[in-house]
């Protein structure tokens, strides 16, 4: 569904990601071991911002007694670095957080402690020594589920959605240089929609590096604008967005 031209552009853009500055201090401490923690964020947790998540995580790690490395200086803080940011309202099955440990610990035991100290909706899945850099993340895969009480036949709507994104779709998109009318398809690696009972399920792979990031809400916005859906009863009509995976620049290999 994505033209060769678009793919090239995406690839050239992903090269720019190397300009992203390395997180400060993370590698400057001798003896501190960098580890990566994979977690998922669902339920009520989807409504908290990145800053709130950072604070929440700091407290979970302290409660769990993980010997985390603190930043130096006047106001030492437990240092956490997160992978690609997640927008408010979006759930995720695969988020990553890097920390440094000042003491060796048993990863399985630590994971157990973290899960005991976490609120419902936050689950820690894996803990391992870092093997890659967050700058290798190029795409994110999402599942969007839409419940619309409108009259339109759902299978027909799914077909229309698939057609919509085969051509440029212009939306006002925010970027560092302000808000511009942008063809969001430039940021879509692939997208497909199916109907399942009364729901529309969309699977999509969107740009997710620091230079090119498409908030999956734009996909929903495009559908709202084009098909007039999700404009009715706020209780009966709803949609969910879940990040399913983070992918490397080939758009296929999972980031770990």
């Amino acid at each position: 569904m994505v033209s060769e031209n678009q793919k090239q552009m995406i690839n050239s853009n992903t090269d720019k990601k190397n300009k992203r500055p390395e997180p400060k201090n993370m590698n400057a401490v001798s003896g501190a071991m960098p580890v990566r923690i994979k977690f998922s964020k669902n339920g009520d947790l989807i409504y908290i911002s990145h800053l709130d998540l950072n604070r929440t995580m700091q407290r979970i790690i302290i409660r769990a007694g993980i010997p985390i490395w603190y930043s130096e200086g006047f106001n030492p803080q437990p240092k956490l670095v997160f992978s690609s940011p997640l927008s408010i309202g979006c759930a995720s099955d695969c988020e990553y957080m890097d920390i440094k440990l000042v003491k060796e610990i048993d990863f399985q035991e630590a994971l157990k402690r973290l899960n005991e100290c976490a609120p419902e909706g936050l689950v820690f899945h894996e803990m391992y020594a870092q093997k890659s850099k967050f700058t290798e993340i190029a795409f994110a895969e999402y599942e969007i589920v839409i419940s619309d009480s409108g009259d339109s036949e759902k299978s027909e709507l799914a077909q229309k959605i698939n057609e919509l994104f085969s051509k440029p779709v212009y939306l006002m998109k925010r970027s560092k240089s302000g808000e511009n009318e942008t063809d969001i398809c430039r940021f879509i690696n692939r997208i497909s929609a199916v109907s399942e009972e009364n729901l529309i399920k969309i699977s999509c792979v969107l740009c997710a590096d620091s230079a090119n990031y498409l908030n999956p809400e734009y996909i929903v916005t495009a559908l709202k604008n084009k098909f007039g859906i999700l404009h009715g009863d706020i209780i009966k009509e709803w949609y969910t967005i879940t990040r399913k995976n983070l992918l490397k620049s080939d758009g296929e290999t999972s980031f770990i």
Partner: peptide, 10 residues
């Protein structure tokens, strides 16, 4: 600030 209303805190 929807987290004002969700509850579900640790």
């Amino acid at each position: 600030k929807p987290a004002r209303y969700t509850g579900g805190e640790f």
